[in-house]
């Protein structure tokens, strides 16, 4: 890199008020294109760091990117302002975060959903296929028609990983069951298109499905509404969405990004923060299925016992859930 050190920018940037004591932790987060109020992935992170803010009183800086180039810009600007740790949300930020983390080796970075292998970066990834397997098995056990549905957001490998785990879970529960699959779209708009989500869900209900799993960010809101209107069941994702329509949401596939984000800030504050890769699966409670007052009538005791034993079997390695990303195919 021939670039001169970014001192000029930093000084210019400092002209704007920066009322931070030097010793205090000044964490920062860069949300991705979904926006922090997507009711799902980004919002999970937001919940986690809001909890951190309430508990510790430490404020954080934040930015929501609107195009590809802003990711790098925002991450670098955070680091220049002395933010530490800097948390990037979503796999798409990996190339930008890698670049910026090299430029600021003293700053601690963290990224969720992707691995960046640098000495000052903590990478947090989830085994979404394990959690999806569990909700798939629950869907198979609950379905009366033997047909269940899956509605993904944007058609990318990550969402295929959800779909693939789900299908394996359904087939494990009922080898003859049929899984109808639809992706909402091919653009990022697919993360936030509840109307189309509702349409796809209605079409799957018309074809005989009685439970639909939505792994589609904000689009899932429409899926759940359609399930409620049709008197069928839906499965939520990422955050616990059981409360959205009590009695309609069979369960939610939890991906504890909130805990992950909280831990990044918290460990940085305590001094226990470590770089490296964290893979959060069922064993680490990084993924799971949600059971609370809103859906306990939908899942009977026998099914609960089955779910517990499945979970134990996956953790013990007796059931192997194939990961789509390992070979870019759902055929293990």
């Amino acid at each position: 890199m021939r670039a001169s050190l970014p001192i000029t920018i930093a000084s210019a940037a400092l002209l704007a008020a920066m009322p931070l004591a030097a010793a205090e932790l000044s964490p920062a987060v860069v949300f991705d294109m979904g926006g922090k109020f997507d009711k799902s992935f980004n919002e999970g992170v937001w919940n986690g760091i809001e909890r951190f803010k309430t508990e510790t009183g430490v404020k954080y800086r934040e930015f929501e990117v609107t195009n590809e180039t802003q990711r790098e810009q925002a991450l670098r600007r955070m680091a220049q302002r002395g933010a530490d740790p800097v948390l990037g949300i979503g796999f798409a930020q990996a190339p930008a975060l890698e670049k910026v983390a090299k430029e600021f080796p003293e700053t601690r970075f963290a990224i969720i959903d992707m691995v960046v292998d640098l000495p000052n970066v903590q990478s947090i990834v989830f085994k979404e296929h394990e959690g999806s397997f569990l909700v798939g098995a629950l869907a198979a056990a609950t379905s009366k028609t033997g047909k269940v549905g899956f509605i993904g957001g944007m058609d990318i490998p990550l969402i295929r990983r959800f779909a693939c785990g789900y299908v394996q879970g359904v087939k494990h529960g009922n080898a003859k069951a049929e899984v109808l699959q639809n992706m909402t779209g091919t653009t990022p708009a697919a993360w936030n298109n509840p109307t189309k989500g509702g349409e796809l869900a209605r079409s799957q209900f018309d074809r005989g499905a009685d439970i639909v799993y939505a792994a589609a960010g904000g689009t899932g809101v429409g899926v759940m509404q359609a399930a409620k209107d049709a008197g069928k069941l839906a499965i939520g994702v990422d955050s616990n969405q059981n409360h959205i329509h009590p009695g309609t949401i069979l369960t939610s596939m939890l991906k504890r990004v909130d805990v992950a984000a909280y831990n990044v800030f918290k460990t940085a504050m305590d001094g226990t923060w470590k770089p490296g890769i964290q893979v959060l699966g069922l064993a680490e409670d990084g993924v799971g299925w949600a059971l609370d007052g809103n859906n306990d009538k939908l899942v009977d005791a026998g099914t609960r016992a089955m779910m517990d034993s499945l979970r134990a079997d996956i953790i013990a390695g007796k059931i192997k859930v194939h990961d789509y990303m390992s070979n870019n195919s759902c055929e293990g």
Binding site: P95, D113, M114, D155, I156, P157, T187, N328
Partner: peptide
């Protein structure tokens, strides 16, 4: 165009072993 690019990047041009649908650098 969006559908085509999505297909190509997710299925054809993606860097193997990579989460994000993008080609190699």
């Amino acid at each position: 165009a969006f559908a085509l690019m999505n297909y190509l990047l997710v299925n054809v041009l993606i860097q193997p072993g990579q989460m994000s649908p993008q080609s190699r650098e």
